[in-house]
Amino acid sequence: KYTPEEIEKLKELRIKHGNDWATIGAALGRSASSVKDRCR
């Protein structure tokens, strides 16, 4: 489950890194597949 803060951070990282899920996941301390599924 993602907190509202994590979702905000995810949005920012998505703008910065696009679909680089590995980088976004690492920044959030989550797996690449987890953040990818969250963005769907």
Rank of each mutant, 00 (worst) to 15 (best):
E12H: 10
K9N: 09
H17Q: 01
S31R: 01
E12M: 12
Y2H: 07
G29E: 09
P4S: 14
G25R: 00
K9A: 10
S33F: 06
E8L: 11
S33H: 11
L13G: 04
I15S: 12
R30W: 12
S31L: 03
G18W: 03
I7Q: 11
I24E: 07
R14T: 10
A26D: 09
V35I: 06
V35L: 03
Y2K: 09
G25I: 00
V35H: 02
H17A: 01
G29A: 03
E6I: 01
N19F: 04
W21V: 07
A27W: 01
D20M: 03
G25V: 00
E12V: 10
K11Q: 15
A26W: 02
D20S: 02
E12S: 13
K36D: 08
L28K: 01
S34D: 15
R38E: 15
W21A: 09
G18P: 10
K1Y: 11
Y2S: 03
H17L: 07
L28M: 14
D20T: 01
R30M: 10
E5M: 06
E12N: 15
A26K: 13
E12A: 14
K36S: 10
A22F: 06
I15M: 15
Y2W: 14
W21K: 05
I24C: 07
N19A: 12
K16I: 04
E8V: 09
S33C: 13
R38W: 13
I7C: 00
G25P: 02
Y2R: 04
I15R: 13
T3Y: 06
R40M: 14
K1D: 15
H17R: 01
L28R: 01
R38P: 06
S34V: 06
E5C: 00
T3K: 06
G18T: 04
I7W: 08
P4F: 12
W21L: 03
V35P: 02
R14A: 10
R30N: 03
E6K: 00
I15Y: 05
K9D: 09
K36T: 05
H17S: 04
N19T: 14
T23P: 04
K9F: 03
I7V: 12
K36Q: 14
R40K: 11
R40D: 15
T3S: 12
G18N: 09
A22Q: 12
G18K: 09
D37P: 01
V35G: 02
P4C: 13
K1M: 11
I7H: 06
K9M: 14
S31A: 07
R30Y: 07
E12C: 04
W21E: 11
K36W: 06
I24M: 07
R40V: 15
G29C: 04
E8Y: 01
K16D: 09
E6D: 11
P4M: 14
S33P: 08
S33Q: 15
L10F: 10
G29W: 00
P4A: 14
A22L: 10
R14H: 13
T3F: 08
N19W: 02
K11I: 09
E6R: 01
G29Y: 00
D20R: 00
R14E: 05
D37Q: 15
G25E: 04
I24P: 05
K1I: 13
A27G: 06
K1S: 12
A22S: 10
T3M: 05
L10G: 03
T23G: 08
I15E: 15
L28E: 02
L10H: 04
T3R: 06
S34C: 12
K1E: 01
R38Y: 13
A26Q: 15
E5P: 00
E12K: 13
G29V: 00
A32M: 06
R38G: 12
K9I: 01
D20F: 01
Y2A: 04
A27E: 08
S33K: 14
V35F: 00
E8N: 10
K16A: 13
V35T: 03
R40Q: 15
C39F: 09
Y2M: 13
S34F: 00
E12T: 12
K16G: 05
A32F: 03
L10P: 06
T23Q: 12
T23W: 02
D37V: 09
K11N: 09
G25W: 01
K9Y: 06
A27F: 05
R40H: 10
E12F: 08
A32W: 03
T3E: 01
I24V: 06
